[in-house]
Design a protein around this nucleic acid. Structure first.
Lengths: 247, 247
DNA sequence: AATTGACTTTGACCCAGATCAAGCGCGGCA
DNA sequence: TGCCGCGCTTGATCTGGGTCAAAGTCAATT
């Protein structure tokens, strides 16, 4: 993985509540009263942060690394319903149990707040709710984009859409409007990709091979991807205008 | 359609901002200053409220009737990404264009607020953002439930899930925990159902027939549905625990 | 009562993607 | 050095749902 700090907040240490994930505007003098309700947790790649249904007495945000939200049916069918990147928020004020499985797909650092005091603070500090509203609306847009992908796109378009989403996000690391090829490491296994896209892992593999064969992407090893021609990829994704949106 | 007031707010006239869609807690003395920024719009079944991309200078909430949010690809493939019921909120503070097509599927009354003043009021009245946050989180949950349906369920399960969602919502009209059969009218055409579920209209029709043949549902005409055994329907939907969630 | 047109159902056939089943590549480890 | 084991690829075959086509229902209109 790339250094996640590059896209995430510069540091969660500087100011916990100023942390972009929670609020971009609050004042530093709120720092002290937070010290006792905030803590950090780290996870290794593959570890589960919390299982759906388990009691969850905290909310938090991703400092570095990547986590996934997935839903599972009784018979084992799984659907990923969210991808958490640095600065993304986890947990719902006012809800006691986790709604989804949260799994670290890379090494992960989270900045957590005990839920009750956080809720109290949210009541007293208006812009926290305003900031959370903005973030939640972004996630909702991402979820809806995803619904179009799941409901109406072909396997090839789905793969291209996923790569666009990741490329787009990583592109912020590079010069905006740059011309050259885009290069990144896939943060997901083929299986995680299939859970994301509502496909089987075999279909994901086949379509990756097909996109490679057709020159839309280049692969070095299994994870390292080069996009020589982003507009071409976006066209393959089925939405020429842009590459989908991300939470 | 049923009288939508039964599930929606009792009246939008009583107090525009106390309107459940916006805020359940504000004080009546905010009424006056709202009179000049709020207005009503009515639409007939089938009318388009706004097209994706069009400038949108208002936000609002559904007073009565049902509307859909849909996304369309250049080649005409469509995916419904939201179902708006009475008290649901439309529009995003801080965004200028509509992100989705909004279409009235029944006769529709909306309570609208000019966007700029609404945003200003939201900044000044903390619980409005808090209320909108709650609602948006509910919508996000619904969208994620929907993603599981789109990505992993079979056609039969999709239909059963949709019927469960509608039945569940309409069930609030009836005594909670009631035993008897559930009866309601589908607010959607077969085509709208297919747009919702990522299927073709033919498949929707076939699966409706199959569920009828198997005694899971009873049909009188094309729209009037009876659910003789709700647990059976939920089982067919693939999630025994409950019938999915709704925005 | 017949016509029209929107919506729905049903049938026949086909294909994208699932399923089942080998193998491959490569890092970790004895 | 070789042998796991895990993630990935590739092949062969099957099938759920799509596609194309026709006919049925029903309310509104003439």
């Amino acid at each position: 993985m790339k250094d996640p700090k590059a896209t995430g907040p510069q540091s969660c240490e500087d100011c916990p509540i100023r942390h972009r994930a929670v609020c971009a505007r609050c004042e530093t003098d709120e720092l002290e009263k937070l010290e006792d309700i905030k803590y950090y947790r780290t996870f290794e790649a593959g570890q589960t942060v919390i299982w759906a249904g388990d009691p969850m007495d905290f909310v938090g945000s991703v400092v570095s690394g990547i986590a996934t939200l997935t839903q599972t049916m009784e018979d084992g069918r799984r659907q990923m319903v969210g991808l958490l990147l640095p600065s993304d928020f986890v947990g719902r004020p006012g809800r006691d149990g986790a709604a989804y499985d949260v799994v670290a797909t890379t090494d992960l650092v989270m900045c957590c707040f005990r839920k009750k005091p956080f809720e109290k603070m949210m009541m007293e500090t208006p812009h926290i709710a305003q900031r959370l509203l903005e973030m939640t609306l972004d996630e909702l847009d991402a979820a809806r984009e995803w619904m179009l992908i799941l409901g109406r796109k072909t396997a090839r378009e789905k793969i291209a859409s996923l790569l666009s989403i990741i490329a787009r996000r990583d592109a912020t690391l590079q010069l905006a409007g740059m011309r050259g090829p885009l290069v990144f490491d896939l943060p997901l296994t083929r299986e995680a990709m299939s859970d994301y896209l509502g496909l089987t892992l075999e279909t994901v593999s086949r379509q990756m091979s097909a996109l490679k064969r057709d020159g839309v992407i280049e692969l070095e090893g299994k994870r390292h991807v080069t996009i020589p021609d982003l507009p071409r990829l976006l066209e393959e994704a089925g939405d020429d205008a842009d590459g989908g949106m991300m939470a």
